[in-house]
Amino acid sequence: MTLLRAEGLTKAYGPTTALSGADFALRAGEVVAVMGPSGSGKSTLLHCLAGIVRPDAGTLTYDGRDLTALSDGARSALRRTDFGFVFQFGQLVPELSCVENVALPLRLNGEKRKAAEARAAEWLARLEVDDTAAKRPGEISGGQGQRVAVARALVTAPRVIFADEPTGALDSLNGERVMRLLTDASRDTGAAVVLVTHEARVAAWSDREVVVRDGAARSTEWAA
């Protein structure tokens, strides 16, 4: 079943064209790697798919809904409930403890502080970083930080996780661990993953890949 489908996405930032007619489709539960050289527009594709950025042209449907027609508020709400995010760095709120960081999306959804932090603690344990719960992001390692970020992406039980270079700042071993935990956890929960990366070894954790070149996306294995 196709969960997220994009056709002919175009997006320009001022004079720079980031996307020029990209197509994309995501089935429920699959892990798709978005690859391509830097500057090819893969991050922009992710931002469009996730409803963070509104494309200039093209269609974008999620679960039968036209994402481009939704208001900013509605897209924000969708991101809170249905999507999860992992970025390369700078995503954890430095002054909140790790467990508070993970609880953040739940609290954005209006959940009570206690309940939210209890669930956050479970996810920290699942990602093998329960010892960081009381620490602040500045006091833990990069690998731990990314796992906390993965826990935060998964805590709302999203249907799609968008991960933009999640291992970009990590060494091989830590990167591997983050990828294993991310893919395992998403398969367990049935979440689909859109994984933007330029590293083949990271992309190798996916089910298939999509290559973005000069703003156009090409799927190599996907036959709709």
Partner: peptide, 19 residues
């Protein structure tokens, strides 16, 4: 370019298997 893409896909297929 297509040649390279095809080859890349093949590489990745194997990498996925190895992973």
């Amino acid at each position: 370019a297509e040649l390279l893409d095809t080859q890349r896909a093949e590489h990745l297929r194997l990498m996925r298997e190895l992973t």
